[in-house]
């Protein structure tokens, strides 16, 4: 892109220049180049931010995206319509992209220089720091829509605030992710309303789906000590502050779909430990077996 920009300054007087540049390729419908989300971003660590804690935080946000992306991939060949299958795959790839950047940042922040692959493939279950919401298998399409609405609304509120984080890399990742998550939330809200306000069957399934997810929502707003410590340094967000925005968004979507906010009790932790502490539901083991099996069987393989 930069070469085009340079050439248009030299031809600033020519109104046709913008049309003439790029797009000479007759195959434009195959798409154009992509932008590196971290281009021009200063990747040095801020001096007063504890690297270990920042790495921990990047793993938390990265693992949320990685495990959610894995669950969404399970919809490939299983979605009700081809168009939605592509939409779900796109969303999954967006989240996988966020996970890659965050896990890579963790390796930089903790000083070990470990790669994104190391964190994805060679950590054990208790080392994963994702919230338990992302682990539960999706049982039907209403379940998927409910998950995407809850997860997307929460993550959008979280990363929206992180665009001002003091770690420039985290801020840049958040800036890219906010646009993606806005679309995920919109896609999910459309389906939640459509199913909630649809037929008797779709409505019954939508209500059941929300009831199944609701116990995992409370955990989203309880910060781990590392998050809260970093929040005081302006590097992280204390998730307790996200509840207001989340509740407002949810109330407006659910009321449009003639649905009410569920009221089931939250799933318990163990001695105060939850997903952020490395305590998970049994569903995570199955995900990791599939996710890590190949990489662990062939640790020297490249792809």
């Amino acid at each position: 892109m930069s070469t085009h920009r340079a050439s248009s300054t030299t031809n600033a007087g020519n109104a046709y220049q913008a049309l003439a540049e790029a797009h000479d390729d007759a195959r434009w419908a195959f798409g154009t180049g992509f932008d590196d989300p971290l281009s021009g971003v200063d990747t040095t660590l801020p001096d007063d931010v504890p690297g270990g804690k920042l790495a921990e935080y990047c793993l938390m946000l990265g693992d949320d995206a990685l495990i959610a992306a894995h669950r969404l991939q399970e919809w490939c060949t299983n979605a009700p319509e081809l168009e939605d299958e592509v939409a779900i795959a796109n969303i999954s790839l967006d989240l996988l992209g966020q996970a890659r950047l965050l896990l890579a940042r963790a390796g930089r922040a903790d000083g070990t220089g470990r790669s994104e692959d190391h964190y994805a493939y060679f950590r054990d279950e208790h080392e994963f720091r994702n919230v338990r919401l992302v682990e539960r298998p999706h049982t039907d399409f209403a379940d998927l829509a409910a998950f995407l609405l809850l997860f997307g609304s929460w993550r959008l509120a979280l990363l929206g605030r992180l665009t001002g984080a003091r770690d420039p890399v985290l801020a840049a990742i958040a800036g890219k992710a906010v646009k993606e998550l806005s679309y995920h939330r919109e896609y999910a809200a459309g389906w939640v309303v459509r199913l909630g306000d649809g037929t008797e069957l779709s409505r019954r399934r939508m209500i059941a789906a929300l009831d199944r997810w609701w116990p995992f929502v409370d955990e989203l707003f309880h910060g781990h000590p590392a998050e809260i410590q970093l929040a005081t340094l302006g590097v992280a967000v204390d998730p307790a502050y996200l509840r207001g925005e989340f509740d407002t968004v949810l109330a407006s979507v659910l009321s449009a779909g003639r649905l009410s906010v569920p009221d089931g009790a939250p799933v318990a932790g163990v001695a105060g430990r939850t997903g952020r502490h490395g305590l998970h539901t049994e569903a995570l083991g199955g995900i990791l077996t599939e996710l890590q099996g190949l990489a662990r069987a062939h640790p020297e393989a490249t792809w």
Binding site: W28, G31, G33, E83, D84, V86, A87, N90, E186, G190
Partner: peptide, 23 residues
């Protein structure tokens, strides 16, 4: 072309199917 239940869904599906490579 694509299938969609209504106009708004058609725009979203078009975005997902035909602009995912920056077209």
């Amino acid at each position: 072309s694509l299938h969609a239940a209504d106009d708004q869904m058609a725009v979203r599906h078009a975005r997902d199917l035909y602009t995912r490579r920056n077209e």
